[in-house]
Write a protein that binds this DNA or RNA. Sequence first.
DNA 1: GTCAACGCTTACGTAAACGTCAACCTTGAC
DNA 2: GTCAAGGTTGACGTTTACGTAAGCGTTGAC
Lengths: 160, 160
Amino acid sequence: MAADLRRPERTFSIRQLCNEFKATPRALRFYEDKGLLTPAREGLNRVYSHKDRVRLQLILRGKRVGLSLSEIRELLDLYDENDDGAAQMARSLKKFRERASALEQQREDIDGALIELREACDRLEKRLAEIRPDLLPRSADYEQLLRARLDGHADMALGK
Amino acid sequence: MAADLRRPERTFSIRQLCNEFKATPRALRFYEDKGLLTPAREGLNRVYSHKDRVRLQLILRGKRVGLSLSEIRELLDLYDENDDGAAQMARSLKKFRERASALEQQREDIDGALIELREACDRLEKRLAEIRPDLLPRSADYEQLLRARLDGHADMALGK
DNA sequence: GTCAACGCTTACGTAAACGTCAACCTTGAC
DNA sequence: GTCAAGGTTGACGTTTACGTAAGCGTTGAC
């Protein structure tokens, strides 16, 4: 009567999925609360099917790429409501592309911040080198060290 | 008795600073609440000095590079408490460098997410092209279009 | 029989950085 | 007199993704 544990009929406990994907029970219940998962029940206990497991994987992937849970839910819903896989795929594709441009934008923002930070660092380093060179924290910028040595750019340390 | 409006003795109203830096009064009051600003008072009204203005600039710069308000406050406090500019600068420098590595890490995370997203997009595009090519949303990737035209890489569109 | 391990539900707490009222004062223009 | 403009102080609301109890039931080991 008992199904083979390795077959697709296999089910999972909340803990098993948590261990496998390094999530917490709280998180899975939260996803359920938000309508992202709807595991079966055995009495009170949640019983996750292979389909549920796949959904969880998709949820976690969505999170890794920075989608919000509600966005993930939209995508997931598409896969359920509709038999026509193509339309869903098209929408997912659109969503993914949008997310990709958002991420690219974020990267540019970060690059901007990095530029501003490096300018500030440079200014601080120069001033410190003038007045209290002993306080200069050892640079975290190995590249600069390397280049200075390889190219003999001693002037960099001299403030030219 | 009134000081020249262009001199360093000049003061600013909350609105003036808000307009200049595109912030909201609520924000400035919030910063004050958090101990980042301590403008003088004229009766109840806040009166911002040049020093306050500079602090605000530093706050906003800090935000642009992704520092939290509490981190910004730490840095700001250093500039006040201590007469010895060098030690503060050294600490700021350290903080900035830390932030820079954090940002670099973030960038790598984003790159990872982008890779995952692009793989997902590619898979979706291929499947869609097979089953419902008409549903393929026009690509958002202008570069690809441009390169394809300039280089005559028609094969890109052929899935070669 | 009782303790630990696991599960359940309900529900408040958290962090960040303000937004958004509400209710009130003051000053100048008309 | 009164209306608008701009200021003030609370203080609650928002968002996201859970963390963290509190209190209770079930099951297996010993």
